[in-house]
């Protein structure tokens, strides 16, 4: 059992639905994006085009964030999901430095509200308990939803179904990765991410 995601670059149009739903479902503060889409351009006019790289925490098999963590706050579940136990997190941020994927965020205690000078709105108040100032946060692969038998919010929301969630050890996902020449980002660093990309 190894939960992970396959991101089909051929189907990604960089719309950022995943970026928004992740914020919304997880109540992340301003400037924090557990899911996001890097957009770039390649080529010279007129042979130019856009490229997109949707991302999330790679939930690496050899997660450097887990080994670097001095307190065991960053840990890996049996099913491969990498999580942060914020009650154990001392906020040293070494996990952030060790992560080659910019997947981790630190809670700088920035203003709770997206509306500076205004009170936090009822949604923000309801989400506030998910945050802990001074600790590190990251994509949980929507573990709460997985434990309820659902799929991560970003996988469900994707309007072009470019985000495929499942057990990487399953035949279906293995087949898909092999048949489409799936690859892992920055695989040279030996992290063995649980997120595969299917080239366009």
């Amino acid at each position: 059992m190894r939960y992970g995601m396959i991101l089909d670059l051929k189907r990604c149009y960089g719309c950022n639905a995943c970026t928004v739903i992740c914020k919304q479902k997880n109540g992340t503060p301003k400037g924090v994006f557990w899911a996001k889409v890097y957009a770039t351009e390649v080529g010279k006019y007129p042979q130019a085009r856009r490229e997109y790289l949707p991302t999330l925490c790679m939930h690496c098999a050899n997660a450097p964030c887990v080994s670097v963590c001095p307190t065991g706050a960053s840990y890996k579940r049996e099913d491969g999901i990498v999580l942060v136990d914020e009650s154990k997190c001392i906020g040293c941020r070494s996990c952030m430095l060790s992560c080659p994927y910019e997947a981790r965020y630190f809670d700088f205690g920035a203003e709770a509200s997206y509306f500076p000078g205004k009170e936090a709105n009822p949604y923000e108040v309801a989400q506030a308990s998910k945050r802990k100032k001074g600790t590190v946060n990251k994509c949980t692969l929507c573990v709460d939803r997985i434990d309820e038998g659902e799929i991560p919010a970003c996988a469900q929301v994707c309007p072009t179904q470019a985000r495929i969630f499942g057990d990487l050890e399953s035949t279906e996902l293995q087949k898909l990765i092999i048949s489409r020449n799936g690859y892992q980002e920055k695989s040279v660093v030996g992290t063995d991410p649980s997120v595969y990309y299917l080239p366009r």
Binding site: Q24, K25, P122, Y123, A126, Q127, Q156, V157
Partner: peptide, 28 residues
């Protein structure tokens, strides 16, 4: 009494549980 999450209705044949970024942002 507080709306804390919006998601696509998976039973709905149009969007099949998906949403666009605008739809996903409607709580704000």
């Amino acid at each position: 009494g507080v709306a804390v999450e919006i998601r696509g209705n998976k039973e709905h044949p149009s969007n099949k549980g998906t949403l666009c970024p605008r739809g996903a942002a409607q709580l704000m």
